[in-house]
Structure formats: structure tokens, C-alpha cells
Simulated scan of single mutants.
Amino acid sequence: MEAVAEGLWRLADYHEKKGELGKAIKCLEAICQSSVSFFPVVEVKTRLRIATLLLTHSHNVNHAKSHLERSQLLLKSIPSCFELKCRAYSLLSQCYHLVGAIPPQKQILYKGLDLTNSAGHELSVKLWSCNFNSQLANALIIEGDYQNSIAALESGYIFSVEICYPELQVEELVKLGITDGMREVSLQHSAIWMAGVYLMLLMQLLENKVAIELTRSEFVEAQEALVQMKNWFVRFPTILQACESMIEMLRGQYSHYVGCYHEATFHYIEAAKLSESKSIQAMCRVYAAVSYICIGDAESSTQVTPFLITAFIYEMKYTCVYVCLFFFFFSFGLLKEMKYKKEECLKGNKKNYNKKMLLKKENYMKNMPIIFK
């Protein structure tokens, strides 16, 4: 039956490359629905692949969640398979996050951290620890638990610092044949799946590094991490396709931090175009609206309200009520700020207003990557 599974995996690869995602998923689900049982590891890998396709290319979160929950049950009977278990925890956490189920998301992330804490000190363990701490910080922020969120970020940062040594970054990728100049077209088929796992984790690490360095105003370090992300994407565009929108969003944040607001709006709009997630599209539009406000001219000001309205519609339709309420009050605050700016300018107090707003924006923008990540 291993040969049958391998054949269906290859057929799914073929359909995915042609953009026929429905056919690809049917090939994979044929393994899960077979009357003849496959080995549990084969079924787990297949279900994780299905969930990844659904989360990347559709809004069918519940379908992906059901496959991941089934994978969890299967993995309980398997004593090893560290990578598969971590992958399942991470994807299931994303599902819970998308449906606004924060308590079960935190529970699954704590299980992931318990697993990594007992798994040694290898590179992959540290990478997964960074991943779980990053997602946990986001979940805690939504609940307003900022103290523990910062603690989670600090824990992830400790691991990221340890991994930043060049000899560690390449201990697992070299084993898979990923060396300097290697591109995805040259990878062996058997190495593609695991290469994707490690590359996605490295991109998560670099994403965290950009966010942390920007909050510290370390722009050179943030720029270097962005360049690394872009270089990895150029070399592995298919494997890292899901990261393209995030790269553009981070470029927008970098541009905003260094005061290049026109460039920031361009990158945010591009990020929204590249993402199929309505939530990310809404977030990008909010970012763009903030940059338009910072530009401050009449033409840019006219762009703010349409961006906020379309973003709010997406949030209303595709996310939980708590996110919608938060987004509503945030949007209301931005529009109120614009009204206040206009009134102050009409009163002739533009100079005093600009000083006040500069201080407010400096304090607020420092926390933007954490708040809106």
C-alpha cells in the first residue's frame, strides 16, 4: 500500500502545480477514505498535506480542522514522529486562531511547547519552540494578557538568538540537499516535504526577527532579515508561496518605520493582493490607512475611509465578533484622529498638533508589529 500512497501523492503534486486544487485534495482524500488501511504515519502525512492546502488556498477552515484533529488522534498511538506532531500542533493552532477559538489554541500550543521542552536541543526543536512561542504570544495579545505575551516573545527570542549562528542554520537543511545556490527545482522529491517544514520555520524565525528589530529601531538588522526572507523566497517560490504576502507586509512595516509612507502603502496594497486570506487583506488595508494618515496630504486623506470600510466589511464577514469589535474601535479612533487634525488645522494650531501627534505616533507605532501581527 506504500506504493499506492506514493502514487497518489505524486498525482496530487501534479494537480497542485497545475492549480487544480480540488483534484489534488481528492487524490489525497482517497488515501484517508480507503477501505484498506494504510500505516498511521502515511495517513497523518496525508491529512497534514490536505489541511495545508485548505488553509493556504481556501477558507474551508473547518474541513482542515477535522483532518488535523483526526491526525492528533492517530499521533497519540505513535511514540516518535516529533516533526509530524509539531506540524500538526502548529496547523491546528492556526485553525483555532482563524475561527476565534483562543482557549483551545493556547491549549494546543502548550502541548507543543511541552513536546519541544522534552525533545532535546537540536535545531528543529529550537525552530519549533520559536514557532509555538510566536503563535502563543499572538493568542495572548488577543486576550489582553500582555505580560505573558511578552514573556512568550522573550522565550522565542532566546531560541532565535541561539539559532542565528550560521553553522546551526544550515545543521538540517544541508542534510536535505539545500546548499548555497540550490533551488527548489533541483530538490529530490523525497526531500521536498521536510524542506518545506524547515524553510517555513526559518521564515517564521526571520519574520519574528524583523518584528523585534523594528520595535527596537534596529533598522539595519531588520533590513538584513528582510533581504534573507526575499532571497529564500526567490530560490524556493513554490514551497514558500504562502510567505509572499507576509514579506510584502513586513516591507511595508519597515518602510513605515523609516518614514517612507508612500512606499509603505504600496507594499501593504501588494500584500493584500497576494493573500487569499480575507483577514490578512483587512489587516493590510488598516496598515495602508495608517500610512496614508501619516502622509497627511489631501489626496492621501481621501484614501483612508475607503480602506477602512472595505477592511471592516472583511472582518465582519470572515472573523469572530471580538476581532470585529476591536477593529471597529481602532477604525473609529483613526477617523476621529483625522477629524481632530482637520479641526486643529482650521484653528491655526497645526504646529502644536503636529508636536502632540508626533509623540503619540512614536509611542503607538513602536508596538504595531506586535499588536497587528
Rank of each mutant, 00 (worst) to 15 (best):
L28M: 01
Q281F: 11
L136H: 07
P104E: 00
L168E: 03
R87V: 11
L240C: 04
I239L: 08
I269P: 00
M229F: 08
N352S: 14
L201I: 02
E244D: 09
W128S: 02
A137M: 05
R235L: 09
R47C: 09
C164E: 14
Y292S: 11
K355L: 15
A195K: 00
K111R: 14
K209E: 07
E6N: 14
V161E: 15
S279N: 12
V304M: 01
T56S: 15
S275Y: 07
R251Q: 15
H121W: 06
N117I: 01
E343F: 12
V170I: 11
V170H: 10
N349G: 07
L115K: 07
A271R: 00
H97Y: 10
L250R: 03
S217F: 07
K273Q: 12
W128P: 03
C27G: 00
A30K: 03
E315P: 00
S58G: 07
Q281T: 04
R10I: 15
A119I: 08
H67T: 02
W128F: 15
I102R: 00
I178V: 11
Y157N: 12
E263N: 05
F38W: 09
L274M: 10
H97N: 11
S190N: 07
E362D: 15
S58Q: 08
V286N: 06
L173T: 07
A139V: 00
F132G: 08
Y322S: 13
V286H: 05
K278F: 14
S186T: 04
L359I: 14
E207Y: 14
S35W: 06
L153E: 11
N148R: 15
E171N: 05
L127W: 04
L92H: 06
V61N: 01
F82S: 06
S155R: 01
V197C: 07
G7C: 04
Y110I: 05
I163K: 06
P166R: 01
S149D: 03
D297S: 01
I102D: 01
K209Q: 12
M182I: 03
L214I: 10
M200P: 09
V36Q: 06
W193H: 13
I163P: 06
Y353D: 02
T305I: 08
C130W: 05
I370L: 13
S90R: 05
V185K: 10
M368S: 13
E337H: 10
I371C: 04
V304Y: 00
L240P: 01
Q228C: 13
I295F: 06
C27K: 05
T238R: 04
P79E: 10
M338A: 07
N117A: 08
K76M: 03
L240E: 02
N62I: 15
F332W: 13
R251D: 12
T56H: 13
E207H: 15
C27H: 04
T179P: 00
V290C: 12
S300P: 09
L173F: 11
C86T: 00
Q33C: 10
C345I: 14
L115H: 04
L176V: 03
S118F: 11
G156Q: 04
V41G: 00
L325C: 12
Y340M: 13
I313M: 08
F266W: 05
N60W: 13
L113S: 02
A101C: 12
Q33L: 11
E221P: 06
Y198K: 02
T302S: 13
L75Q: 01
L140T: 06
V258K: 03
V197S: 01
L98M: 13
K18F: 07
E213F: 10
C294N: 06
I293K: 14
Q72H: 12
K26G: 01
